[in-house]
Amino acid sequence: MAPSKRKQSSEPGVIPGGFTALSLKFKADSGSCHAVCVKEHRVRAEKNSSRPLDRTLFALNIPPYCSEHVVRELFSQFGPIQSVELREKPGTTDPKESKLSKYFTPAQKEGFRVGYIVFKNSSSVAAAKSHPADMPLVVSTEERPVRTGLQKWVHQYSQSLVQPDKLQEVVDIFMQEYDKKKEEESERLKKEAEQQEEDGEGWVTVTRAKRGTKARPHSEVANQKALQKEDRKRKRKELLNFYTWQHRHTQREHIAELRRKFEEDKQRIAVLRAQRKFRPY
């Protein structure tokens, strides 16, 4: 976009709350625009090092046909871009998932998304924010057409055909790493176990290790099982209908049960009567 044009156009669409609305069109001849709201990224404590506070633009309402690549193209007019990250909801990412290969990343919802656009220079953020509202960004142009609809699905289908050897390779790499990690872990445990064993003179080093091999694994299920076992043991010892008071008690319970049923039935009838459910025809 030429800077001269920007001068002619009117004010950028500013919204209370610090956002600016940029309009976005799919094609140059499209009739209506989406409003993409942008703002400098600002959170109280950003742990994520990939989103530096001064250079990151936070964008809302990015239509589903804008991939990361398209967003990069669109916003590069405001300055060189370092990275683009699109997400369903604002928030931080789980670093573990991001490391996975493309075959194993779970499919994302293809809806409207929020984006974190990291520029190389902090001035670009301001440039984007001051972009006028009546100069829409255009997603698909002659030079870089964006696939949608049937074209996209046919492309997707071809992409989904996985080569077994490539997949196998990915699996092998992952499993090797996993095995290595496992080994390290067991190594560590072994070391801890060794520490707890008696040394030649009968001494045991007592450490503050969290989970020794000898310590029972604490789990909820095990806890409950133990409690239930106790219960059952107690029940087995109990005598039923042995003393007269117990017998009386059972009878009383029986009558109470009948009464409860009777009351329930009455209630049910009342409901049905209210709904006029007794008209046979």
Binding site: F26, S30, G31, S32, C33, H34, A35, P63, P64, Y65, T148, G149, L150, Q151, K152
Partner: peptide
């Protein structure tokens, strides 16, 4: 809701099918 844009999106997203 930005209805005009949504209606246009229906067409864009279903290009070739709609």
């Amino acid at each position: 809701p930005n209805v005009e844009a949504i209606l246009e999106d229906f067409c864009i997203m279903g290009e070739g099918l709609v």
